[in-house]
């Protein structure tokens, strides 16, 4: 069995104390294997984004632990956490994912360059990454010269550039129309099929359905998990 690339154990998050105490997450266990796309759904306030933020080392859990690439985040310093965000996980948000003052390629190479990679090499990897999201010719465009869908593609390319292998997508299609959304999901799916792992937060069942596993959160707890059939391709099943 493959080792999970991202692993959460009895993850809990509490905001406030006393009467203001709110449990955002209660003892969540979740593993993400390489090549796997896991969707997290649930209503607003169910803890989806909190979970994602802790997976991406943006937030610290109150209880439990997060292990990314074999590193327990709780044992890392702030500098090292920043490094995890540079080299292990990549974020895609709903919109405004790109720094407006950098070109597409520069946006993608930013985490690599921040990690000290030579600009030329980072650029090379960024261009490769752009090819993978089918935006080969757009390396030198600025975000305001890209459509919403293209911006999200660039963000996905950035999320998986170089050594990064875990994509954390928080409602990546929230600001897009139906058809573009589907192409974005398809892209994430194909990147996962190519070996990346992705954690997708969405409240749209149709988008969650692209995942191998759909984890439904309710009030900070896992309410249910539905798994895709391993071989769903026979048409006969549908008659």
């Amino acid at each position: 069995m493959t080792e999970p690339i991202l692993s959460m154990r009895r993850l809990g998050k509490t905001h406030g104390v006393g009467a203001q105490r709110v449990d955002a997450l209660v003892s969540v266990d979740l593993d993400l294997l390489p090549g796997e796309l896991v969707a997290i759904t649930g209503r607003s306030g169910s803890g989806k984004t909190t979970l994602l933020n802790m997976a991406g080392a943006l937030d610290e859990p109150t209880t439990g632990e997060v292990i990314v690439d074999g590193q327990n985040l709780a044992t890392l310093s702030k500098q090292e956490l920043a490094r995890v965000r540079r080299v292990s996980v990549g974020y895609v948000f709903q919109q405004f994912n790109l720094l407006p003052s950098l070109t597409a390629a520069e946006n993608i190479s930013l985490p690599l360059e921040l990690d000290g990679m030579k600009p030329a090499l980072a650029r090379e990897l960024a261009e490769k990454s752009l090819d993978e999201v089918e935006l080969g010719g757009m390396a030198d465009r600025y975000p305001d010269q890209l459509s919403g869908g293209e911006q999200q593609r660039v963000a996905i390319a950035r999320g998986l550039v170089g050594p990064r292998s875990v994509l954390l997508a928080d409602e990546p299609t929230g600001a897009l129309d139906e058809a573009t959304s589907e192409s974005i999901l398809k892209l994430i799916r194909s990147r996962c099929d190519a070996g990346a792992a992705a954690l997708l937060v969405t409240h749209e069942p149709a988008y969650a359905a692209w995942a191998d596993r759909v984890v439904r959160l309710r009030d900070g707890r896992v309410e249910g998990i539905s798994v895709r059939s391993k071989t769903p391709s026979s048409t006969a099943d549908l008659s």
């Binding site: 398809k186 969650a208 359905a209 692209w210 539905s226 798994v227 769903p232 391709s233």
Partner: peptide
């Protein structure tokens, strides 16, 4: 509801998987 939802979600995943095929 939960059972039904799990079932439909699984179905939806399968349809989606077919679509990407």
């Amino acid at each position: 509801i939960e059972v039904q939802r799990g079932s439909i979600m699984g179905l939806l995943q399968d349809y989606t998987a077919l679509k990407s095929d």
